[in-house]
């Protein structure tokens, strides 16, 4: 999907970096499982590392020793979970335009949203900076590959990122970011009370829901809290002067993209309650995991946006052949 629908914007290139990070996590998880052993009981011994005896205070920690296939498989499943999560975050990062996300936020949350968006665009710029500075290391006659090269460019990259944020903040300020309208003090106070009460209500309700004791009172409280918070947001929006230029229309394509995501989530949750082993293949005893057909088909639904989402415009085509 990333391949089909990514744009030429700078953040689209970060997907590869996220995939690499996922692989790294997987490898680290496996290495730890091999070196430190794991509490998973297993009988299929693959090989045995020389065990290093540790002093008494390090009881429970083992270095080296038997490495079982079960432990490895368990670590692999565990690492895979995290790696897939990273891959998903990377894909979202590569495909979503933070600025368009920002437009969908209610007016009162706009300024908080900008902070989040600036932080999100930070990562891809960092990746680009690291690349440029690693190239510059080559010019100084040092190795441009390896972990050491990455570490030594850390400070200049951070400096550059800081300078860029300060420059952006200055530009946004001179272009009228943060101008607010005058509102009556009564409205301002009501906004504060509504928002605070709403959030407190939601917190209490969530606590009640999680503890299983207050399901009776928690649901109505949750609804009331959400309503109060929403009221606060609407009133708070009065302070914002902003208007929107050509808001994004919400049509069939948009429904398909968001609907397919929601459908995958709902189906997976529903299926996992019916057939738990399909989602957590057991490592003990060692078995070949079967491909559960229904959940796999459900996950495939998530590919719909690859066709449904509009193609990003292709830049540069008319400049150079």
């Amino acid at each position: 999907m990333v391949a089909a629908r990514r744009s030429a914007a700078p953040w689209s290139r970060s997907y590869g970096a996220f995939l690499k990070l996922g692989l790294l996590v997987l490898v680290i998880r496996l290495v730890f499982a091999v070196l430190l052993g794991s509490p998973i009981p297993g009988t299929t011994v693959l090989f045995t590392l020389p065990e290093i005896p540790l002093p008494g205070w390090a009881q429970g920690v083992r270095l080296g020793g038997r490495v079982t296939a079960e432990a490895l498989v368990f670590a692999l499943y565990d690492g895979l979970k995290l790696a897939v999560l990273l891959g998903c975050v990377g894909a979202a990062n590569a495909l979503a335009s933070p600025a368009r996300l920002l437009r969908a936020l209610p007016g009162a949350l706009y300024e908080a949203g900008v902070a989040v968006v600036v932080a999100m665009t930070f990562a891809p710029h960092l990746v680009a900076d690291v690349r440029r500075l690693r190239a510059a290391r080559r010019l100084r006659g040092r190795a441009d590959r390896g972990f050491g090269a990455l570490l030594s460019v850390g400070i200049p990259v951070l400096e550059g990122a800081l300078e860029r944020s300060v420059g952006l903040a200055a530009a946004m300020d001179t272009r009228g970011f943060g101008r607010t309208a005058e509102v009556a003090p009564a409205i301002r106070r009501t906004t504060a009370v509504l928002t605070l009460a709403g959030l407190t209500g939601v917190c209490a309700a969530v606590y009640g829901l999680l503890t299983d004791t207050g399901t009776v009172w928690a649901l109505p409280l949750l609804a009331a809290g959400l309503a109060a918070a929403a009221g606060g947001l609407v009133l708070g929006g009065r302070r914002a002067l902003r208007t929107r230029y050509r808001p994004d229309p919400w049509a069939l394509r948009e429904w398909l993209v968001s609907g397919s995501g929601a459908a995958v989530a709902a189906l997976t949750v529903w299926l996992s309650t019916r057939d738990a082993t399909a989602f957590h293949p057991p490592a003990v005893p060692l078995t070949m995991p079967a491909l559960p057909l229904l959940p796999a088909a459900a996950v495939l639904l998530g590919l719909i946006p690859a066709v449904a989402a509009p193609l990003p415009p292709e830049p540069g085509k008319d400049i150079r052949r």
């Binding site: 943060g178 902003r242 230029y245």
Partner: peptide, 23 residues
Amino acid sequence: SHFVTDTVEDELAYGMESLGTPP
């Protein structure tokens, strides 16, 4: 370092949005 949005048209509109110009 001056650009806040990512496409030309949005960038031209950004300042006006901040100032609350009618659509």
